[in-house]
């Protein structure tokens, strides 16, 4: 199985990532999700911090967990860190499988996991002031539905 996990400051190319993800295993289905910085009126930037080492290890572990639950041929997760502007892409989760439903479900599972367990933190700058984004209980609830 192809597993590619990257934490990086630079943007990514969807076409290149999907091409790399489908290079092996003859998947018939690719599902992907991209998250973007919202274009809210007073939001000037979003700065993301992570825990080098643990973040990559946690995401890789969860990609393997997804592969044990669904018949996948590949997983790509790219999460950006550093300073991002409204409209910028933050995250890509792309999942390849021989089955459509597996690709959709595994993609959603991985996003729910990223939101609740991968060590990233967002700091917003609004009107010249910075504050850390608070975690949301709804994200924990979304993750809980996957627990066996």
């Amino acid at each position: 199985m192809i597993v590619s996990v990257r934490v990086q400051t630079q943007d990514f190319s969807l076409d290149a990532e999907v091409a790399a993800l489908t290079a092996e295993g003859d998947p018939g289905a690719v599902a992907y999700f991209t998250g973007h910085v919202r274009k809210e009126g007073n939001l000037s930037s979003l700065t993301l911090e992570h825990y080098p080492g643990m973040t990559e290890a946690e995401i890789t572990r969860m990609a393997q967990e997804a592969a044990s639950r669904w018949p996948l041929t590949g997983v790509t997760v790219i999460h950006r860190v550093g300073r991002l502007a409204p409209g910028d892409r933050i995250v890509l989760v792309a999942v390849a499988s021989s089955h459509r439903r597996a690709a959709f479900e595994a993609c959603e599972f991985l996003m729910d996991y990223l939101k609740t367990s991968a060590p990233f933190w967002k700091e917003e700058a609004r009107n010249g002031e910075s504050h850390w984004v608070a975690a949301r209980a709804s994200d924990d609830a979304a993750m809980n539905r996957w627990r066996k």
Binding site: G35, L48, H50, Y51, M54, H79, I90, V91, M111, L114, K115, T116, S117, A118, P119, F120, W121, K122, W132, V133, A134, A135, D139
Partner: peptide, 10 residues
Amino acid sequence: IAFFPPVTGG
């Protein structure tokens, strides 16, 4: 040992 707030990525 690392200490941090609840995570807010994704």
